Amino acid sequence: MSIGNSPEDDRPSVEDAQPSAGYERPPVGRTLQQARIAAGLTVDEVSTSTRVRIPIVQAIEQDDFSRCGGDVYARGHIRTLARAVGIDPAPLVAQYDDEHGGRPSPTPAAPLFEAERIRSEPRRPNWTAAMVAAIVAVIGFVGFTLFKGEDQGNGPTQLAEGPAPDKKPSPKATAKKPADPKPDPSDSAIAAVPKDKVTVKLTAVDDKSWISAKDHNGRLLFDGLLLEGESKTFQDKERIDLVLGNAGAMELYVNGKKVQDEFEPGQVERLSYTKGDPEVG
Rank of each mutant, 00 (worst) to 15 (best):
P111D: 12
S105F: 03
P55R: 06
L41Q: 03
R79I: 02
T50M: 14
A110C: 06
E61H: 03
E116I: 10
R119D: 12
C68L: 02
S66N: 03
G86H: 05
P125L: 12
E45H: 00
L81G: 06
T50L: 12
T48C: 01
D97G: 05
V57W: 10
R103W: 04
R67L: 12
S47N: 15
A39Y: 11
G69H: 06
V132K: 14
A110P: 04
A38E: 01
R53F: 11
L112P: 00
F65C: 09
A84E: 08
C68G: 05
R67N: 04
A130K: 08
A90K: 08
I135D: 08
V72P: 08
A35C: 12
P106H: 04
S105D: 09
T50Y: 11
A90D: 06
L81I: 09
P125C: 14
R53D: 12
G86Y: 06
I78D: 11
G40D: 09
C68T: 10
T107R: 00
R36E: 06
P91R: 07
T128R: 14
D88M: 06
R67E: 06
A133K: 08
V46D: 04
Y96C: 06
A110T: 11
V72K: 00
T107M: 01
A38I: 00
R124I: 15
S120D: 12
G70H: 01
V52F: 12
V136I: 15
F65R: 04
R117I: 12
A59L: 08
L92N: 02
V43I: 11
I78S: 10
V57Y: 08
D63A: 07
A38H: 00
P55V: 07
S120V: 12
V138W: 11
G76R: 03
V43F: 01
G102Y: 07
I60R: 09
Q34L: 13
S47A: 15
P91Y: 07
A109S: 15
A110F: 03
P91Q: 07
R124K: 11
A94K: 00
P125D: 13
S120I: 12
V43G: 11
R103C: 03
R75G: 13
S105G: 02
A90L: 01
V93K: 05
V93H: 00
P104S: 07
A94M: 05
A133L: 09
I54N: 11
R51G: 08
I54P: 09
P125E: 10
G76V: 02
P125F: 13
V57Q: 06
W127V: 12
E116W: 10
L81V: 09
R117G: 07
R124W: 15
A115P: 00
S66F: 01
A94W: 04
A39P: 09
S47L: 15
D63K: 04
D98N: 00
R75H: 05
I118G: 01
R119S: 13
A137V: 14
P122F: 03
A84K: 01
R36G: 05
T48I: 14
A94I: 11
D71V: 05
Y73W: 13
R103H: 04
